[in-house]
């Protein structure tokens, strides 16, 4: 393991609970490399997660960490950020966690444009509970609760984040970890709500049931369904079917919530009721 990131791990917590071949470790590595290259102090970082395999990340990193309730990482993080805006607040969520049970919180964190980074590890399945389909499971794929094939439409989280009011939105995959790390770093540095969706593999709960028995097969599949944004734009609707664009979809500077709130405080103080 790379030394520069080992210093950020709680070694006594290992071995971790993830299955062999799981993509979550790759995302964890990318996040820690991004943090290292920025040079943040461990004490100033708060990492908040919800429930699911990906949410176990917070147990393994030596920051101020929180493993909260299902879907609620963002409102917890919002409270933390607003109570102490000097903290660097990062949330890590899975696809079910963020897009299903936590969907409303995701929309409103983006709407406020609060300075929090949301890393969504999208393995397209509820892994921890054994392979039930999620809002990001592609239509037609099999889940334990979609044994005849998933008929739900699949959510596009990045489009959602863009339209809801975020400042930075990108998608990458565990297949392209260099790109993922770059996007994560930009997201961490963005003053505002930043979103990085990382397509990841779950060989045990998604792969086996969908005829991709090995991690390598799953990564090959991820490679085949992810298309860089500029190429994606040239595809016909038929060609886009079953594929996901990767790249940066939004990178803007707009007023950030905790900053705006300072303005509210100043206005209130000038009103002068409570001194």
């Amino acid at each position: 393991m790379n030394n520069e990131i080992v210093q950020y791990l709680r070694k006594e917590m290992f071995p971790n609970i993830w299955c062999p071949g799981c993509g979550i470790g790759i995302v964890l590595g990318a996040m820690l490399r991004a943090i290292h290259s920025i040079g943040w102090e461990k004490d100033e970082i708060v990492m908040v997660s919800g429930i699911g395999c990906s949410s176990r990340i917070t147990g393994y990193v030596d920051f101020n960490t929180m493993n909260t309730t299902h879907g609620r990482a963002l409102p917890y993080a919002t409270g933390i950020k607003m109570a102490n805006p000097s903290l660097k607040v990062i949330t890590v969520m899975g696809d079910g966690d963020c897009a299903a049970i936590g969907g409303n919180h995701f929309i409103h964190a983006a709407r406020r444009n609060i300075d929090i980074t949301a890393i969504i590890i999208n393995n397209m399945i509820y892994g921890m509970t054994g392979g039930q389909y999620s809002p990001l499971t592609p239509t037609g794929k099999i889940g334990t609760t979609a044994p005849y094939g998933n008929i739900d439409q699949c959510f596009d989280l990045t489009s959602l984040a863009v339209s809801a009011g975020a400042s930075y939105v990108a998608r990458s995959s565990v297949f392209d970890v260099i790109q993922a790390t770059r996007f994560i770093k930009k997201a961490f540095l963005k003053k505002g709500f930043s979103v990085v969706e990382i397509i990841s593999d779950c060989p045990i709960s998604f792969g086996r049931i969908n005829r991709m028995r090995t991690p390598a097969e799953m990564l090959e599949w991820i490679k085949s369904i992810t298309v860089p944004k500029n190429k994606w734009e040239k595809l016909t609707p038929e060609e886009k079917e079953g594929k996901l664009p990767t790249g940066e979809f939004l990178d803007i500077n707009i007023p950030e919530y905790s900053k705006n709130y300072q303005e509210v405080c100043i206005r209130a103080q000038q009103g002068g009721k409570d001194k």
Partner: peptide, 8 residues
């Protein structure tokens, strides 16, 4: 959730 986060 935000209340608990702020308290922490």
């Amino acid at each position: 959730a935000a209340t608990i986060g702020a308290s922490l």
